[in-house]
Design a protein around this nucleic acid. Structure first.
Lengths: 221, 221
DNA sequence: CTAACCATGTAAGTAGTTACATGATTCT
DNA sequence: AGAATCATGTAACTACTTACATGGTTAG
């Protein structure tokens, strides 16, 4: 079973996000953005439930004039509950990618449309990677867990973008072939194969392909 | 807006899955498994809606003795509707990874638990990659779109697994450091406390991360 | 002989999201 | 002046999932 809103909020509190507003930001632009999502409508009720169950406490700060601010904090039993939730088997990842689904129907699109979609998609992934990287470096992250999270987000996004770009050209080429030369083309051939091989052949070093190469000049300091 | 159940079914029909049962398999074990999910409760109503709207037709096969089988087929206007859906801006990918979220709280876990979770996670991803690869090769896929989908799924999963493995060892090492060298903690609450401390103690000099080679020996093979 | 597979469907439940209501403050 | 940010909360809605109901067929 996937982690529910309460557990997610507990985690956010443990991570140092201490108001409803702040928690939402953690899931919107913060360290969790790539891996979970949660909106106000889930957060505030969850927070109240945590209070009732004694898993969190709340300290109301009078914000002179502006709306009162509720500072939440996780309790020991809250931390125990979080721990317990992490102990039991974690649900498998769930991905939903309309773009990838759409790619199953390239035959209904123009070459240019396919190219545009894929370019945009790769760019979006790269942007995400950069944002996570910035997050990692800007507020220099003490926390090994957070570092891990952000690095993986960064590396994963970057690599996914490279994958897309690597196979994009093959796809577009194949499209041209099947459309312009519906019969003859043996195709797929060279370009496709080289890209294809990379992942499984444990080639020594030659392949410049989409291989995992998270070697960004990560701040060797 | 994400693609709805109707559009997803339309796509499955276009891809050649022609019964409700078959469509579910396409999302469960088939080419879409990695990118979308859909269950009976959505599929059958969607299929009926498509019939009503003239986007699909249905041919009832009498399965002597066994339950009748309904063979669906996409119509021209169905194909047009699918095409139209793919034309308008596609929703961004949405990932939900409880495992990655959990990694933000490694300080609440034992070293071995972290290792176990990560190993299992990497293995699961690798399995998925292999399954998609098998799918790609077994029923040799004519279709450029399907090929693209399966290849990306395969490569992506494999690479993600590698990423995990590459950063896993660093994480575990960092964990050992911060835990084993807590400045002379009196330790009232045993292991839990020492683990707890890590995040806020802004460790002064040392830095758990030795500068050189922050990650992945990167496949020195 | 039992488990898994084939095959369709529905009703009830779930867990969320969206949009709204409210309002001060700070940036452009 | 207007937009964005800070800040909390709720009610209505939505779109799906789960579990059930049904039952023949095939493989171990």
């Amino acid at each position: 079973m996937p982690l529910d809103a309460k557990t997610l909020c507990l985690g956010a509190l443990e991570a140092g996000f201490d108001t409803g507003y702040d928690i939402r930001k953690a899931f919107e632009d913060g360290p969790f953005q790539h891996f979970q999502s949660l909106s106000y409508g889930s957060i505030y009720p969850a927070l109240n439930a945590l209070l009732v169950e004694g898993l969190a406490t709340c300290d109301v700060r009078n914000g002179d004039g502006r709306r009162d601010k509720k500072i939440y904090a996780i309790t020991d039993s809250g931390r125990a509950a979080l721990k317990a939730a992490l102990m039991e088997p974690l649900a498998a990842d769930q991905l939903r990618s309309d773009t990838m689904f759409a790619m199953a129907f390239v035959h209904l699109m123009t070459r240019d449309q396919v190219k545009r979609i894929l370019d945009e998609y790769a760019r979006a992934n790269r942007r995400l990677g950069e944002e996570l990287g910035r997050l990692l470096r800007d507020r220099m992250c003490e926390h090994p867990g957070h570092q891990f999270l952000l690095r993986l987000g960064e590396d994963g996004s970057e690599m996914w973008a490279r994958c897309i770009e690597a196979l994009r050209d093959d796809l577009v080429a194949a499209l041209d072939d099947t459309r312009e030369a519906p019969e003859a083309a043996p195709t797929g051939g060279a370009a496709a194969m080289t890209a294809r091989d990379a992942p499984e052949t444990r080639e020594p070093g030659s392949g410049s392909r989409p291989g995992p190469d998270p070697h960004h000049p990560r701040d060797p300091r």
